[in-house]
Simulated scan of single mutants.
Amino acid sequence: MSFVLSSLPQTWPWLILMAALAAGWSGQRGLAFALLAVFGGVALALGHLEPIALMALATGLLFAAFIPRTRGPARLIGHAVLVLWSLTLGAHLLPGVRNLLILDQVQAGPASAPYSLHLNLDKPLVFFALLLAWPALLQRNDPAGRRALISGLLILAALLPLALLTGALELEPSLPDWLLLWMASNLLLTCLAEEAFFRGYLQQGLSRRFGPAAGIAAASLLFGLAHIGAGPAVAAFAALLGLACGLGYWGAGRFYVPVLMHFAFNLTHLLLFTYPGPA
């Protein structure tokens, strides 16, 4: 808690963004976009966003809001542009965005590799774009049933022991002083945005067109490829995590299920194992 309080002079604008994300996740769209507008103004005033970046983000959101009104080839093009825009934000490639470096080469424990954390303002915008472009994002789907959900949970439970057995991780229980800030950032700025894109949007959309097996497989593989920059082993584990979350989403029919599964995996990794890996 002391770290959270001491970092407030730097991090307080992100509390507005996190509140906007929480409001959007709970279905309060009006409040979510009002808070997002406030955050955009604050980020611009404090130099976290340059005017050109703010214009690009606002244009992207307006474009996303227009997609549900299109039909035929125009809708297909719209979704293709939305995917490219989302990947650009997720990869932090948009010029004029200054994500806040809040942890710089810290260690969760003595055996853990140095770790840095940015409070992102680009990746979370993907969630807001999908709220506008994909009305089904937060809707309840018909659940496939307990078998699919349990299968996803079993895969999720097996991932960290598998990483331990293969030497990708080591046991190292820890309770870093920056845990609370990490939890808020990981849940709202990372897991919510990533699950919205890969499960709520890609998996759901592909499942409607090609069936649930194809949708889950494709979204899981793409989720793995999105982590290829950290190495093939991390990409493989990410694909398995995507499979677990995808089965959980399909089995429960609720968007919050893969978000919480993803977050639970990340939190368990931090608390019990070398994070992000052994030194």
Rank of each mutant, 00 (worst) to 15 (best):
Ala34Pro: 00
Ala34Asn: 00
Ala34Thr: 12
Leu36Pro: 07
Leu36Gly: 01
Ala37Met: 01
Ala37Trp: 02
Ala37His: 06
Val38His: 04
Val38Ser: 10
Phe39Asn: 01
Phe39Ile: 04
Phe39Gln: 05
Gly41Tyr: 03
Ala43Lys: 03
Ala43Asp: 01
Ala45Cys: 07
Leu46His: 03
Leu46Asn: 06
Leu46Pro: 00
Leu46Val: 03
His48Met: 12
His48Ser: 11
Leu49Pro: 03
Glu50Gln: 15
Glu50Trp: 05
Pro51His: 07
Pro51Leu: 15
Pro51Cys: 05
Ile52Lys: 01
Leu54Ala: 15
Met55Ile: 11
Met55His: 01
Ala56Tyr: 01
Leu57Met: 13
Ala58Phe: 03
Ala58Trp: 03
Gly60Phe: 07
Gly60Asp: 08
Leu62Gly: 13
Leu62Val: 09
Phe63Arg: 01
Phe63Trp: 10
Phe63Lys: 01
Phe63Asn: 02
Ala65Asn: 02
Ala65Val: 04
Ile67Pro: 09
Pro68Cys: 04
Arg69Lys: 14
Thr70Val: 02
Thr70His: 03
Arg71Glu: 13
Arg71Pro: 02
Gly72Leu: 10
Gly72Glu: 05
Pro73Ala: 14
Ala74Pro: 00
Arg75Ser: 07
Arg75Glu: 12
Leu76Ser: 13
Ile77Arg: 04
Ile77Ser: 10
Ile77Lys: 05
Gly78Thr: 07
Gly78Gln: 11
Gly78Tyr: 04
His79Ile: 07
His79Trp: 09
Ala80Lys: 02
Ala80Tyr: 05
Ala80Gln: 09
Val81Arg: 00
Leu82Val: 07
Leu82Pro: 05
Val83Arg: 00
Leu84Val: 15
Leu84Gly: 15
Leu84Asp: 03
Leu84Thr: 14
Leu84Gln: 10
Trp85Gly: 00
Trp85Asp: 10
Trp85Val: 07
Ser86Pro: 02
Ser86Phe: 06
Leu89Ile: 05
Leu89Phe: 11
Leu89His: 11
Gly90Glu: 09
Gly90Tyr: 09
Gly90Asn: 14
His92Asp: 15
His92Gln: 14
His92Thr: 08
His92Ala: 15
Leu93Asp: 09
Leu93Trp: 15
Leu93Cys: 08
Leu94Pro: 09
Leu94Val: 15
Pro95Ile: 08
Pro95Cys: 10
Gly96Cys: 08
Val97Tyr: 06
Arg98Leu: 02
Arg98Val: 03
Arg98Phe: 14
Asn99Met: 05
Asn99Ser: 13
Asn99Phe: 00
Asn99Pro: 04
Asn99Val: 01
Asn99Asp: 15
Asn99Gln: 05
Leu100Phe: 04
Leu100Lys: 11
Leu100Glu: 03
Leu101Ala: 14
Ile102Ser: 04
Leu103Phe: 02
Asp104Arg: 10
Asp104Gly: 03
Asp104Asn: 15
Asp104Pro: 01
Asp104Ile: 08
Gln105Asn: 12
Gln105Asp: 11
Gln105Ala: 13
Val106Trp: 01
Val106Arg: 05
Val106Ile: 13
Gln107Phe: 04
Gln107Cys: 06
Ala108Tyr: 02
Gly109Lys: 00
Gly109Pro: 01
Ala111Val: 13
Ser112Leu: 04
Ser112Arg: 03
Ser112His: 06
Ala113Val: 02
Ala113Lys: 13
Ala113Met: 12
Ala113Leu: 11
Ala113Asp: 07
Tyr115Asp: 10
